[in-house]
Design a protein around this nucleic acid. Structure first.
Lengths: 300, 300
DNA sequence: TACCTTATGCTCATTGTTAGCATATCATTG
DNA sequence: CAATGATATGCTAACAATGAGCATAAGGTA
């Protein structure tokens, strides 16, 4: 065998938001992301991914963006090497989400949902991570570990929502997730959170990180929203993605001053209180220009 | 042939800054980026890239980051499909840059250097792009083209330095660069700027875009700087990358309040005026944490 | 010594963010 | 029908970040 035997896989992180919950499309009873081989017939990687996802999930995908390409050795099958090219896709949920494949993404990352109060998992996580810090061989290693833990999990400073991938990788290194090969090192129990096959949970973390970052400087929320919506719905969608609550009045002000949306003139009455104006995204925004994104205003 | 015949290439955008000029490592007399096949022996893509670049350029690479994976059809050789995985690498220039491969990156993108005054190419570019806008078939197409041109080239609004890739793609679509297959459409002359083989100039644009964006929120400048330096040198490095001048006093204030650097106690006297303090990057920053990057302060 | 050059410190106006108060408008209930 | 509870929406004070300019310091050279 002189030539390298290489195959290419496409993996999709397909995201939707329904009822204030962020969802991801899965297969294998929630243990895998949609994936399939890249076929030479496809016009491009992006086209290949679109075709594959739509065939597999019967969902039209609105926005698609490349995430990362993996080819680490533990992905090797015998005699062949697989390159996985992962994508983030955003979509609206059409028919009430009858599909069985949709899972709330906080099942996989319970420590990432800060909308209610600090998730209880975090206390446990902090304790285990502190043990991992203390288990470092030299003082330098311990200091570096301490710093990483503090920054990523917001112990000294503030919680940064985009660090999903870094946090997952930290837990992986510390042997606190079942996917980790370092489990023997610490021998401690596991952090709650559903695992996935191969490195799919890492890919999902990459997708969430990217989306949380992107939503702040590009108008991609609207890919997740229906045609018409109230500002509260929009806010809840942004909060679902960010995993953090926001100050209502400031959120509204930001949205308005960015000229992201326009009134339809209609009202939504099913809210229980004063009827809310219905909005739609402005046409210029839908055409994905270099507009500002959905900035979040921290909750009080 | 049932199985897909796929090969994987690694392409590097290797960047350094010397004398206030941003440089990129090239081959083929400036017409290509360093590239080579990904071999199954490599531990990972990143390791493969590192090995390849260091063997080919005899340069140690400090920081490496994946850019994008391409597999468009026009990359096809007969019977095989090549996937190109591109990387951004940052390095310090050691021995005065005797290597012939280093090229100033503004040779390839003369419209991106706004440090002196508006580059003269821009007048030409704007004129050609306006013609392209007018050549749109329908009024909708023309309006969309106008909006894209305005936003990307800062005609109505302000110039945004990170849009290097989008600007190049616009010129490509408009048939204004020699690499473009749309040249017949407009039949106009070409915009100055050295072309490259295949889609290497697009990959370079991707790298510059990424670096210009990254430098603002991650401390990566120091990968391009020598051990000790004056604040002016640091500023000039940042300006070289951004292609824009910055307000000196405000730059200093930002750097200091971010605690990016610390004084060494020494002074540089070769400046011509009052001797400048020499600084070095703080150890915490060198260990690449989630620190803030080098924010730029717009010039007056 | 006068003058040029670069370094460095400080101020001020403007803008953007955070947080909270106040009011409007619906439904429901006593 | 008035009181109550819910949500929507408007407004403002306090504070932080940014952009721009003035002033001074400390070296060199004519």
């Amino acid at each position: 065998m002189t030539e390298s035997a290489i195959t290419a896989d496409l993996v999709a992180v397909l995201v939707a938001v329904s009822n204030g919950q962020p969802l991801v499309m899965t297969l294998e009873d929630g243990a895998a992301l949609p994936a399939g081989p890249f076929e030479p017939g496809h016009r491009s990687l992006q086209a290949g991914l679109r075709a594959w996802v739509e065939r597999q999930t019967h969902h039209p995908v609105g926005y698609v963006e490349q995430l990362y390409t993996f080819a680490d050795r533990d992905r090797t099958k015998v005699g062949a090497r697989t390159i996985s090219i992962s994508y983030l896709g955003l979509t609206r949920l059409l028919g009430g989400g009858g599909d069985a494949g949709w899972r709330g993404w906080y099942e996989y990352f319970p420590w990432e949902d800060h909308r209610a109060e600090k998730p209880p998992v975090l206390r446990l996580t902090a304790a285990y991570l502190t043990a991992w810090v203390a288990a470092g061989s030299t003082i330098t290693v311990r200091r570096q570990r301490r710093e990483r833990v503090d920054v990523n999990f917001g112990l000294g400073c503030t919680w940064t929502d985009e660090l999903v991938l870094q946090r997952y990788e930290l837990l992986w290194e510390a042997g606190l997730v079942p996917e980790s090969p370092h489990r023997h090192e610490s021998g401690v129990a596991l952090i709650p959170g559903t695992p996935m096959m191969h490195d799919h949970r890492r890919i999902l973390a990459t997708g969430i990180s990217r989306l949380r970052a992107k939503i702040k400087y590009r108008p991609v929320v609207f890919e997740l929203m229906p045609e018409r919506f109230t500002l509260l719905k929009l806010q809840q969608c942004a909060e679902a993605v960010a995993g953090q609550l926001t100050h209502k009045q400031n959120f509204r002000r930001l949205i308005e001053q960015q000229q992201l949306v326009e009134e339809t003139g209609e009202f939504a009455t099913e809210t229980g209180g004063r009827p809310a104006k219905l909005f739609r995204f402005r046409a210029e925004v839908r055409r994905e220009r270099a507009f500002a994104g959905t900035k979040l205003a921290r909750a009080p």
